[in-house]
Simulated scan of single mutants.
Amino acid sequence: MAARSPDTPNPDDPVGYFLQDLLYHGKSERTRAAYKRVLRRFETFLTDPDKNPSGRSVAPEAATQRDCMAWIHTLRGDHAESTIATYASYLHRFYGYMTQVGAFESNPMALVVEEMHESIDKDPMRREISVMGMRKFVSEVTHPLERAVVFALLKTGMRVGEVSNLDLRDVNLADEDVRAAYSLGERPQLDGRPDSIFVAADAVRGQVINGEERTASNKRKRETIVPVDDELRRVLVRWLAIRPDAQSPAEPLFVSTSGDWGNRLTPKMIRNIVECHAREHGWYRTGGGAEENVTPHYFRHFFTTHLRDRTGDRGIVKYLRGDVASDIIDTYTHNWGDRVREVYEANIYALS
């Protein structure tokens, strides 16, 4: 157990301590009353051995993830899902604050809330595709541009708009031939990070970025540096070897090789690429829903599911997806970039 400094609070009544701090922070009486009602109810659950899964009385600072999950479970049937989510957020904030001030050593609600907010498995009937099945699919995608787009979606978990927004400056590849032909990886965030892709968090549709008005927005909570493994690098290098000169000064990574020759691929174009190949493979049907049709969004689901199951590390997967803020990242390691690459390269699936 970590040693506490003399200035670290160690209240006999943690809930009361937190509620008092809410007052000091200027929270209204109504807000404080809501927190008090929920937190005291949780506290009562913990101290009742007949309800607590541990079979004993547990203080809030000693509660585990399982204790918190059990309490959330008791709310179901009596409350709407939105109410349960609100109660969980109250408990999460309580533990987060008490951990931050040093009164508690950890936040057992962190993973509980993460599970509740997980968005990839909303429909249990969604088509499930194995890595072997996806390999067969991508083997049929032979055009260098289309193959590079499909690989980028599948191996990074990026949204379709984020792939559309990539410029050459966002991609740093350790390949002498393409580096001689293109100015790659000129983002300062990529300095010293070969074989990486920078995904910005602030790109907005209609905004002029790097000299070009964008047709898509990035929906990340924070900027992300995604590793590029050997397989994705080879596919990107093959594409760059035949990439037409871009019409935009922003130098998009992916540009059209058809009617809009040299123009940035739009999200609609990328969706059409995926739909065309999915339809030919029997994975897309007009009128089919999300549980049946394979789309770029499904690729994000595939990436999340398989990498999460392989790593067992939801934090890193959420970082790669752009779903997590820097304060959560700090709970893992100060050397986050190397940690991400190490786990990613050890666990990312091969598609060819």
Rank of each mutant, 00 (worst) to 15 (best):
V226H: 08
G259H: 08
A110F: 05
A216C: 10
E81L: 08
P49D: 02
R205S: 01
E212G: 04
R40Q: 05
S139V: 07
A181Q: 11
V274Q: 13
W283F: 13
T47I: 09
L145V: 12
E105V: 01
H143S: 09
Q100K: 15
H79N: 04
W71L: 04
V160F: 09
I225L: 15
F151P: 00
T47W: 08
D260Y: 06
E81N: 13
I129L: 14
A34H: 13
G26W: 15
L166Q: 07
E61A: 06
R147S: 12
M269D: 12
L166D: 07
V235N: 07
T156E: 08
A346N: 15
A63R: 07
A246G: 00
S352R: 11
E29V: 14
V138S: 09
T305C: 01
E251F: 05
L46R: 05
R193I: 01
M269H: 12
Y17M: 06
A62C: 07
P244Q: 02
P244T: 00
A152P: 00
L320P: 15
F299Y: 10
T333K: 08
E186G: 02
D245M: 06
M116W: 04
P49Y: 01
L265N: 04
S119K: 13
P14G: 10
V141C: 10
P108F: 07
E61W: 13
T99V: 04
V141S: 06
H143D: 13
P6Q: 06
V15Q: 08
A181E: 13
S5L: 15
K318V: 03
R37I: 03
A80F: 05
A63F: 05
R159V: 01
R308F: 10
E43A: 07
E43Q: 06
K221F: 02
D323N: 15
D167M: 00
E81R: 11
M116N: 05
L75K: 04
Y332A: 05
A148N: 04
T74Q: 13
Q20I: 00
S139R: 15
R222G: 06
T333N: 10
Y87S: 02
A174K: 02
L240S: 02
P144F: 03
V208D: 07
L46V: 01
T311A: 06
H297W: 00
I316F: 07
R339C: 03
T305G: 09
D245V: 13
K318G: 03
L307F: 10
F302M: 05
E162Q: 03
